[in-house]
Amino acid sequence: MAELFVAGPVAGALEAAATAVGRLDAALADTPLRPAWAVWSGLDAACRHAGADGHKVDPYRLAAHLHGLPLRTDPAAPPIDRGREITGLNHAVGLRGWLAAPDAGQAALRDAALDSLRASGRDRPALVAAALGMLEWLAGQGSRPAIRAAVPLYLRERGTTIHLLAAVTGGDALRAGAADPDGFTVRFLEAVLREAADGRDLLLTMEREWREARNRVDRRAGGRSNSRLPAAVDLLAASPLLSVSALADALGCSVEGASRMLDALVGLEVAAEVTGRAGRGARRLYGLKRLLPIRAETTAARRRARGGPRGRPRRVLTPPFAELATDPAEVAVRPDADPVEPARLAPVSFDFDALDRLVAAADERTRGVRRLLDRIARGEKPFPPGDGADGPAPDEP
């Protein structure tokens, strides 16, 4: 029982980290937004891990890169800077694969890291055991991505969490040197605290956006029980980036009807077409307005609306994120005040099997990008004849 004792600084950090992890895990227990949260928090985690490895990656650019969208670049930037950014994006894709879609080799190495955590966890609190296990694994020159991917599995296995919190890895502790076990443990616990708090903030932001979108659509529907717009909002909130055909499949309607619903939601300023329309037949992806900055990272140009004035459109310069601006009075809170959690919305019924397919497709897209990068690194053709697995997604009308 002596092993249960922890030093004073470690005990304080352990209490704060365990509380933050528990609050995040409880918040995820009864929300249908958990699949979408898992995707976007996983992208944020991949960017943080890439930063710890020396690569600066923007989550919106990573999302656009994973979906095969052309990225906007600064023409004045030297080629070495552009090459450095592509290297960072590809590194983040690989890290995302460890968390969401590991191959056989990665899975085997992750399981070995998990065994190392189990060996360090006898008669110790789970979070402390995870910190010491990570330190021992790294001392043996173990893989950093493998141990970061193993930590969420270990916490769930020990019963610390109910859900698999892929964003909670303590990976930020790897930014500093591990001078001594207690110092590293405190840094690990502080990193877990930040990751769990950021994950909960992301979930609250998604729920707040969902509530505002539902309220706006409910006012537009005027109480009509046969309107499918609330169900479309639910699916947009609970999924990764959504295409027209995916919405039609989930709601059991025609592609044309799904396209009209998405256009209506864009007109209500509830949803945004994050890809930019390049013309008929181009793949169009939609999300709630929180994801609008993705469009600013791509080079796709928006199509001129029918009936508009001819000629070159007038150039209007707007600051970044201007489309997401809100009233400062709405976001002003007291310092150190906990956000007030709104009551949970009851989702409109739709096909959750279709939602599972959307999440699986997002993971498969990660695998496809990694296979493409591996072929390029070996000097092979990016798309071998007869291999359509990694090619672009089917066109949308």
Rank of each mutant, 00 (worst) to 15 (best):
L114W: 11
A119R: 15
V93T: 10
A119C: 04
R148W: 04
E85D: 00
P125N: 13
G97K: 01
A149M: 14
V192I: 15
D115E: 14
H163M: 03
W137Q: 09
E209G: 14
R187D: 08
L164Q: 12
N215K: 02
P145A: 13
V186F: 09
P181Y: 02
T160D: 09
V168R: 01
L164E: 08
A179M: 03
D218K: 01
R216K: 15
Q106N: 10
M134D: 07
R122H: 00
A139R: 14
E85S: 03
P152C: 13
R200W: 12
R82L: 13
E209R: 08
G177I: 14
A131E: 11
L117T: 00
A100D: 03
Q106D: 08
A107R: 05
A107K: 07
V151H: 06
A191P: 00
A113N: 07
G94H: 00
T205M: 15
W98Y: 15
L189K: 00
T205H: 15
V128A: 02
A112Y: 05
L164G: 04
A173P: 03
E136D: 15
G142F: 14
V151I: 14
L204S: 02
G170Q: 14
G121E: 05
D81K: 13
Y154H: 00
R175E: 14
A178D: 08
A126Q: 03
N215A: 04
A167M: 08
A101W: 09
V186N: 02
L89A: 01
S143H: 13
G171V: 06
D182K: 05
D115A: 14
W137N: 11
R187W: 01
A178V: 10
N215S: 14
T87Q: 11
R211P: 03
G199K: 02
L138E: 08
V151R: 04
A167W: 05
P102S: 03
W98H: 10
W98G: 04
A173C: 02
L114I: 13
G170I: 03
T205A: 15
A126L: 10
D123S: 12
V151A: 09
P78W: 12
T160V: 05
A112D: 08
L127S: 09
A92N: 04
E209D: 15
P145N: 07
I147A: 08
A119P: 01
S116F: 05
R96L: 05
